[in-house]
Amino acid sequence: MPSPTPLTLDPGADLRQLLTSVRETLAADTAVMLLVDATGAVLEPFASSGLDVTLRTGARVPIGRGFAGAVAGTGRPVVLDDIDAGEVVNPVLRRRGIRSLLGVPLVRDGAVFGVLHVGTLSQRHFTADDVQRLTDLADEVASWFADQSLAEHHTAARVLQRSLIPTLPPSIPGLDVAGRYVPAEGDLGGDWYDVFALPDGRVGFVMGDVLGHGLQPAVVMGRIRSALRSYALIEPSPARVLQMLDRKISHFEAGTLATVLFAVARPPFDSFVVSSAGHWPPLVADGRSPATAVALRTDTMLGLLPDRTRTDTVVPVPEGGSLCLFTDGLIEQRFGAEQAVDPDAGLAAVAASLAASRTAEASCVAVLADLIPEHGTVDDVALLVIRREPT
């Protein structure tokens, strides 16, 4: 048997190259990486070196059963010097002529997310040194994979959010509308805003925040956004729309929590009907003095009590006045010498910035310039300014 090559992985290599390095380091004929699926019940082949047919057949291994399933189920290495003496669920391994297997768990943040195993075409006794070597390599592969997954999820979330959040809100006669979405310095979340026309002449305005970070909240945000638009076509009351949305989330998106502010108005836009599901109330400005928070009942956030009755509030907006919707990331910046989170200070800063601006676009620029630190924000920020143009 050839002596193992030195233990080393190139962090700049792709996954197939890393698995080839694993195979060569252990002087093995195959190296396979399996990942726990979304249900947490089975392992699915993800990548391999020397056993590509494994991926094409898509053989799934129940956790707790067979060789790889035992590795994932126990979180410990498993050695099979002769696979004929043990249970191997994947028939491809036998058909390929594999005789001996060594598998170790892939672990990240204390949880097993997959299995890395190597195999040989000739019978071999894997030693304690082999086990340690593969365990060390698995740690490197796990770290590489986590970094790559984070980057890919971040990119996917950015692409998804860019496709769903309007850079330029639709032109609405009688209104001057501008919005901004500022991603956090790190994982993206589920913040969004939306502006859409309805067939009866009304216009809908949405500000929302799906709790969590990464790709999944962004995906859920897309589904919530689409559902809200659909319900708004058949239900004129924002409160009823949010109640329908809450039932949908509680049933189909179990475990999801979100805050949403939904407002509708029709020309001449002298009043808006607003309902809040756990979201910060909007600010209203008259164009002369600092903006003030709307006296709005804040109902329960979505995902908690789907049968709870929700309320609508009529909010008057004077000619030349503005309505400002935002997510909590905007006002929960750190203020003062102690750099403490002070939402009241954040609200005051937004109110002052709105009063000093004459257009919706200028308001967005001023608010973000005054509140977002130069080093970036730790939470996503969504902002929507709706200004009623003078007749």
Rank of each mutant, 00 (worst) to 15 (best):
A68W: 02
G69M: 04
G69F: 01
V71P: 10
A72G: 03
A72I: 00
A72V: 02
T74K: 08
T74F: 06
T74P: 00
R76K: 11
P77G: 07
P77N: 07
P77T: 06
V78D: 09
V78M: 11
V78Y: 10
V79R: 15
V79P: 11
V79K: 10
D82P: 11
D82H: 14
D82K: 13
I83K: 02
I83V: 14
I83D: 03
I83H: 03
D84G: 12
D84H: 13
D84Q: 10
D84I: 02
D84E: 15
G86F: 05
E87C: 03
E87P: 06
V89Y: 00
N90C: 02
N90Y: 01
N90G: 03
V92F: 04
V92T: 14
V92D: 14
L93K: 02
R94L: 04
R95A: 14
R95T: 08
G97C: 11
G97W: 09
G97M: 11
I98F: 04
R99W: 08
R99L: 12
R99F: 09
S100W: 12
S100Q: 12
L102D: 10
L102I: 13
L102N: 12
L102V: 11
V104Q: 07
V104F: 07
V104D: 07
V104G: 05
L106N: 04
L106G: 05
V107F: 09
V107A: 11
R108P: 03
R108F: 15
D109W: 13
D109G: 12
D109Y: 13
G110R: 00
G110N: 00
A111C: 09
V112P: 02
F113P: 03
F113D: 06
F113C: 06
F113T: 02
G114H: 08
G114R: 07
V115P: 03
L116R: 09
L116D: 12
H117G: 08
H117I: 07
